[in-house]
């Protein structure tokens, strides 16, 4: 690796490493709080609650991710998301917009 390569790569790798440490190792381990369910959501399944939790976690971490952007698998890998997408309350649409756009 010559100096011209180091001039770009070394500082960039240091920034990536710092963000990695802050995100995966040294960040405060605040217990995740369960989000409030939408009206009528008390009878939701476990999978639905899990997705509510994911949404809450993603929103909480967005403020402290450094240079990282959250990356979530698309809905095609999670068949249980499909019924949520038909939810007329709009909660699922916002969930989908948060996770997949």
């Amino acid at each position: 690796m010559d100096t011209s390569a180091s001039a770009l790569l070394a500082p960039m790798k240091e920034r990536v490493l710092r963000d990695t440490l802050r995100l995966a190792v040294t960040r405060p381990n605040v217990p995740a709080a369960l989000p409030e369910l939408p009206p009528g959501g008390e009878a939701c399944t476990f999978e639905q609650a899990r997705w509510f939790w994911i949404e809450s976690e993603a929103r909480r971490e967005l403020a402290n991710l450094g240079g990282y952007l959250p990356l979530m698998p698309s809905a095609e890998f999670w068949p249980h998301v499909q019924p949520l997408l038909a939810d007329p309350s709009g909660y699922a649409a916002r969930l989908h917009a948060l996770l997949f756009t």
């Binding site: 770009l8 790569l9 960039m12 920034r15 990536v16 963000d19 990695t20 995100l23 995966a24 899990r50 994911i54 976690e57 991710l65 240079g67 990282y68 952007l69 959250p70 990356l71 979530m72 698998p73």
Partner: peptide, 20 residues
């Protein structure tokens, strides 16, 4: 690109804005 994986269930992945 730099891809960070921090959990498997549910999968929690991040991509860094920087790369080359």
């Amino acid at each position: 690109l730099y891809l960070l994986l921090t959990a498997l269930d549910p999968p929690r992945a991040y991509v860094h804005r920087e790369g080359y």
